[in-house]
Design a protein around this nucleic acid. Structure first.
Length: 853
DNA sequence: TTAGGGTTAG
């Protein structure tokens, strides 16, 4: 077959035609000369061909050792080049490089002419024995005619990862005018797949005229699929004149592998309708695309009909499918049916299934059972069991696995290290996670994202941000969408508006906004940094909003005290056909409680229970209690808690305690406080809250007793602390702090504000000072509250028009709240204060919380 | 063309 039609050479300059003609001429001359020499040698040494015959016998019996020995004893005249070809073939077959090299040196030292035949065998020997450098050298010395030998070397170079070498040889083959065959394209396709670009591969195939060949078409499909160009692969698939089971399987697998399960399944259905017989690979691919076990069961049936029920790979994939679909009963049936054919793969699938369903005990038990069965865990099963510990917060179990990993020297595996760090991070042990991270010689994107996300979730926001900076500095691994998604919650928790904006810039430069995960966390970040309008603008830009998008925006309105807006958005979400879940109900209930919308709150609570059939959790109950308590319905709240179908926790009673403080009900507070102290005896916040209630009622003796109680328990009050970001630097203040270099200015400013307040008849809210002393001292203590210091620094250090954004770790104090209102009017500055509970937006002497805090 | 494992938002 004329493989390379003349048109195929249009890829090369016209002088190629001359080269081809000349080489053919040279080849003919060389070959004639070889025949001449061979005949001459045979004539001279006719009597000595015995050793040649003997050698052939040895080769035929596969005795390479004696063949080489005999060859060494013989002279050039004894040996026919065809015999050399046979012995080289034997070396190639037995992968014996040492013998092969000896024969090569025999050939060279005896001056044998390296013609295409002998050269081919020499190249084959080197190719098969893995000395690809020598193999390529032979190709440079001799013109090898048969495509087979080129294909083998092209293939081997690709296999060892020398993709450019493989493509170079392919191009040389083409320029030499060697007739290619269909295998040539299969052999080189892997190399084109693995280099950047490689787009010309399809062009070569089309020009070679092999485009119609089924196996070549399959290679082109594989090429596009590896490059994740599923649509291009589909075009090749659609244009194929004939498709074999491999073509169908590739297309199905290509879709499913690239997350397009529906398309993959529709090709599978078409395959079934076309009457093509499915095989093991078809079903293994299809099972990977089954996201619900009903469909998977149908494929299970097809597999049984196709007599694949006993195939290990089919069973393992079935097991994995059922386990991923959450149908553990079916998974267990398959597992039971495998009895003695269970491998570490089967165990891993079921362990991972248990882990996903939160059945940590079962997962750990199965892991132990596997070891008892004599099947040793490998990196996959260890990763699966670590993941199980991570999801179920099993720190002790995870630590035991870590010990096992150390004993069995498995720590080198990146998957294992990453899973270990994730386990520690999810169990809150960031120090351990850090240690694993620091010991990793090579870190990939998962490693960085895991630790950054771990810091972020464990309230080490600053550490998360610095690790991200280090990642950018080191430049070994580029951040991706997930890095940013890990990072934004850190900015959100710190209220680090400027940092968040910087990351927003990074997101826009890298076009990450189209990723909904990113867009949602960006909206959440801005809402939590107090930039509600910005959050809303971005929310409006999200093209296809999901439940999380709506929920973060609803929660954003809620925490800023825009209850009505939150409710409107919740209704809009339902109109858009998105069903609320338990978290979105928490957001809307929280919004109702923070805006004093009692009727609406009840309406949503009932809607959730009776229409959406969502069982309320502690969080929902806490919102209702909070809503009732804030609005002064203290007894209603108390009765509500008593009638709860689930056990109330400290947060629930704590919400009522807060209500008691707002409405100055000391008696009820005492009753509630005892319940809270019993439930969370170590939480100092509740003692402080109760002490405040006493202080506000001026019951100083009770304050003293409570203080003593705190002291006896060895508890220390969590110090109030506020911070403000100025020019990218976070300034932190604790109460009475004078460490800031601007302290003098800050104090003078606050004194001035206080004086102006007094002039306008606003006296300090000294009840909040919590100090039983003379009024003056109290006033001074108030002046030192951390949020006032931070706000003052903000006003003094930032340009007019810039919003002052302050964050406090506890609830804002009443006096600071009054003063902030006054300062916003006096200085005509907008102040956004985020406390542990919500946002306060101070403008023109008013606060957005309207007293609900 | 062919089995199992690791990182993201409310």
């Amino acid at each position: 077959m004329a493989i390379l039609s003349s048109s195929s050479f249009s890829l090369f300059p016209t002088h190629q035609f001359q080269t081809k003609k000349h080489t053919r001429l040279r080849r003919d001359l060389t070959s004639n000369r070889a025949v001449f020499i061979k005949n001459r040698d045979c004539l001279i040494n006719r009597s000595l061909t015995d050793s040649n015959i003997q050698l052939r016998r040895l080769i035929e019996s596969g005795d390479l050792v004696n063949s080489v020995k005999l060859l060494h004893q013989s002279g050039k005249q004894d040996i026919d080049p065809r015999t050399l070809c046979s012995v080289l073939q034997l070396c190639a077959d037995s992968r014996s490089l040492k013998d092969g090299k000896e024969i090569d040196s025999f050939i060279r030292s005896n001056g044998f002419v390296l013609d295409s035949n002998l050269g081919s065998k020499l190249a084959l020997m080197y190719t098969n024995c893995g000395d690809l450098v020598e193999a390529r050298r032979v190709f440079e010395q001799v013109r090898i005619e048969k495509a087979l030998f080129w294909n083998l070397l092209i293939n081997e170079l690709g296999k060892v990862g020398d993709f450019s070498g493989s493509i170079e040889l392919f191009k040389k083959m083409m320029s030499f005018g060697i007739e290619m065959d269909r295998y040539t394209f299969s052999c080189v396709s892997k190399s084109f797949t693995n280099v950047n670009g490689g787009e010309e591969f399809h062009g070569y195939v089309l020009k070679s005229g092999f485009g119609d060949c089924n196996s070549v078409g399959n290679s082109v499909m594989a090429f596009y699929l590896k490059k994740k160009r599923v649509e291009s692969a589909r075009k090749v698939f659609d244009e194929m004149s004939e498709r074999d089971v491999i073509s169908w399987n590739s297309m199905i697998n290509g879709y499913i592998d690239n997350g397009l399960a529906e398309e993959g399944l529709s090709v599978f259905v078409r395959m079934l309708c076309s009457g093509i017989e499915v095989d093991l690979a078809t079903l293994v691919s299809v099972l990977a695309g089954c996201v619900d076990s009903r469909l998977g069961r149908a494929v299970h049936g097809i597999g049984l009909k196709a007599c694949l029920g006993q195939e290990d790979r089919f069973c393992n994939k079935l097991l994995d499918m059922y386990s991923k679909c959450g149908d553990l009963d079916s998974a267990k049936i398959v597992f039971a049916g495998m009895s003695d054919r269970r491998s570490v793969v089967s165990y891993t699938s079921l362990i991972a299934g248990y882990a996903r369903e939160g059945l940590a005990g079962e997962a750990v038990k199965l892991f132990a059972e596997m070891e008892e069965e004599g099947i040793s865990p490998d990196v996959y099963s260890v990763t699966a069991v670590l993941n199980c510990c991570a999801r179920n917060r099993l720190l002790d179990e995870g630590k035991r696995v870590h010990e096992w990993i150390k004993e069995n020297d498995m720590g080198f595996d990146m998957f294992v290290s990453n899973a270990l760090m994730d386990m520690y991070a999810k169990c809150g042990s960031m120090r351990e996670a850090e240690l694993v991270f620091s010991e990793m010689p090579v870190k990939d994107i998962y490693s960085w994202n895991t630790v950054i996300g771990g810091y972020s979730k464990n309230c080490y926001a600053n550490e998360a941000l610095s690790l991200f900076s280090l990642m950018l500095e080191e430049k070994r691994v580029d951040p991706d969408e997930r890095t940013v998604a890990c990072l934004l919650p850190a900015c959100a928790s710190l209220s680090a508006f400027d940092k968040g904006r910087e990351i927003h810039g990074y997101i826009m430069r890298n076009r990450y906004f189209s990723d909904r995960h990113i867009a949602n966390s960006l909206v959440d970040m801005y809402a939590k940094c107090g930039a509600l309008l910005l959050a809303r603008m971005l929310f409006d830009e999200i093209a296809s909003k999901d439940l999380v998008s709506w929920t973060v925006m609803i929660a954003g309105y809620g925490m800023h005290g825009f209850g009505k807006e939150a409710i409107a958005l919740f209704n809009q979400m339902r109109q858009a056909g998105i069903e609320p879940d338990e978290i979105s109900f928490v957001s809307v209930l929280y919004a109702c409680s923070h805006s004093g919308l009692v009727d609406e709150g009840w309406r949503f609570f009932n809607l959730m229970r009776y229409d959406c059939k969502i069982e309320p959790t502690l969080e929902h109950y806490a919102c209702i209690v909070d809503m009732l308590a804030r609005t002064g319905n203290l007894l209603k709240a108390y009765r509500f808690i008593e009638n709860m179908p689930i056990q109330p926790d400290a947060t629930i009673w704590g919400a009522l305690l807060c209500g008691c403080r707002i409405h100055h009900d000391v008696k009820l507070a005492e009753k509630v406080a005892e319940k809270v102290f019993e439930l969370e005896p170590e939480n100092t916040g509740y003692y402080v809250l109760m002490a405040n209630i006493y202080a506000e009622a001026e019951k100083w003796e009770e304050v003293r007793k409570l203080r003593a109680r705190i002291g006896r328990r060895g508890l220390r009050k969590n110090p109030g602390c506020s911070w403000i970001e100025i020019k990218g630097r976070v300034n932190i203040f604790v109460a009475g702090d004078s460490s800031n270099p601007e302290t003098e200015k800050i104090e003078a400013f606050l004194r001035g504000v206080r004086a102006r307040m007094r002039e306008e008849g606003l006296s300090p809210q000294t009840k909040y000072a919590l100090i039983d002393a003379k009024e003056m001292e109290k006033e001074e203590a108030l002046c030192g509250h951390s949020e006032k210091l931070a706000m003052a620094l903000g006003i003094l250090s930032s340009g007019h028009g810039k919003i002052i954004r302050v964050t406090k770790n506890l609830r804002v104090c009443g006096d600071c709240h009054e003063m902030a209102k006054f300062m916003s009017k006096l200085t005509r500055r907008e102040i956004v204060l985020r406390d542990s509970n919500r946002f306060h937006q101070f403008k023109d002497g008013h606060c957005s919380c309207r007293g609900f805090w």
